[in-house]
Design a binder for these strands. Sequence first.
DNA 1: GATTATTTACTTAGTCCTTAGTAAGTTCCA
DNA 2: TGGAACTTACTAAGGACTAAGTAAATAATC
Lengths: 230, 230
Amino acid sequence: MTENSDARKPAVGRARGRTKAPTAKGEERRREIVAAASELFARAGFRGTGMAEVAQRVGITEPGLLYHFGSKEGLLRAVVEHRDLRSQAFARDIAAVGGLQALREMPAFAHRNREQPGLAKLFAVLLAENLDPGDPEHDFFVRRYREMRAVVAGMIREGQRGGEMRADVSPELKAIEILAALDGIASQWLLDPEEVDLVISIEEYARTLIRDLATDPEPAETGAPEEVQG
Amino acid sequence: MTENSDARKPAVGRARGRTKAPTAKGEERRREIVAAASELFARAGFRGTGMAEVAQRVGITEPGLLYHFGSKEGLLRAVVEHRDLRSQAFARDIAAVGGLQALREMPAFAHRNREQPGLAKLFAVLLAENLDPGDPEHDFFVRRYREMRAVVAGMIREGQRGGEMRADVSPELKAIEILAALDGIASQWLLDPEEVDLVISIEEYARTLIRDLATDPEPAETGAPEEVQG
DNA sequence: GATTATTTACTTAGTCCTTAGTAAGTTCCA
DNA sequence: TGGAACTTACTAAGGACTAAGTAAATAATC
């Protein structure tokens, strides 16, 4: 399927009929559709979700969908681009505070993720469906992960320059590890939330990271409640 | 699709026509089919692969496939159960050597994985397609991850009992973290092998782990070649 | 040890449903 | 009055799966 059908693929990404500016109603409609598609793609994946399901969910016909997005892949692209909150929020968090403090923010990040399991799942599912070059959004995920690794590596380099992080770790490799751990923990949590607590697991991993990376030993927070710094 | 069609689902798992013992030829054929299906499922997932594709690959008809496995889900089950080398090899490695030594074996595990990227990908893709309860192999993956976490936690407990690992880490949480990191690194490697080196990343993570968990400082292996112990 | 009966391992032909996508027309708002 | 935002009606292909029959190997019987 992916191999021979490179010829005459339908126009992807933009609408069929429309050529000028969209109206407010249209934009609102598109937001609804993206929201519905996000939910369904998170459940059954891109391949496991039919256009008819999405259409029914928003109360429109199938060609109505295609009017807005041109093709199923166009809809996927819209979902992937619009629902990009994850890496944006992630980058904002890490860029806002530098060095070690960024690691201390990881539990907050975990809390936010737990409140929107749909988003975490959407990300995990779509990533797995786009591992192959040739998968429709492969390049998007490659770019996103390169960006995220760069942001995390930058955060570590900052900590190293400031002297609060040990200098003998490679920022690039540590960035791979950190993103890997976060993804992997999320994946185990999504699979088996009764056995794997997302927040506790990430908190513990953050403690490990700080213990391993900090040059100064952290104030022992075992038994010491949060009001220490107040 | 997953919601309403609980009624009259076709018999899953076993063959339609056959009721007694299979012949040697049949078993060989089934192995061929499982191998082909594994490759195709790794590429496009269970949902993205048609029975016709699998059939063509092994040179059989579609009903020929169904004779052997009863349904598409039956074929998936066979793939998942037969291609279970990963966790078995993993458990064997970890159980063979206890404690810290198991962590030192992680790079070897990484090397094996790199030689069979198809298997790693199959695992990642099928996991993501079975995150939901109700997905056909959801329970299988839940069980597998529980087993793997138990094996890793046991290895850590052993290290702690022997005194070579620090006692103030939770074996259960550390097991989650280790499996998460391994999966996450593999996932980034599968997505972008040019930027992410599986073996180097896992080696570095193993070093971090040993540095963090060992009670005795390890002999600095930087610059010291392997012939030290010879 | 040849014949008969049974079973495995298929094939051909066909069912019925779902799939993404098209063509052409309609409504409604700016 | 022209274009955005739809709908109805349709196509062609692919989806898993069934029914019924056949070739060949195996097992049972005389």
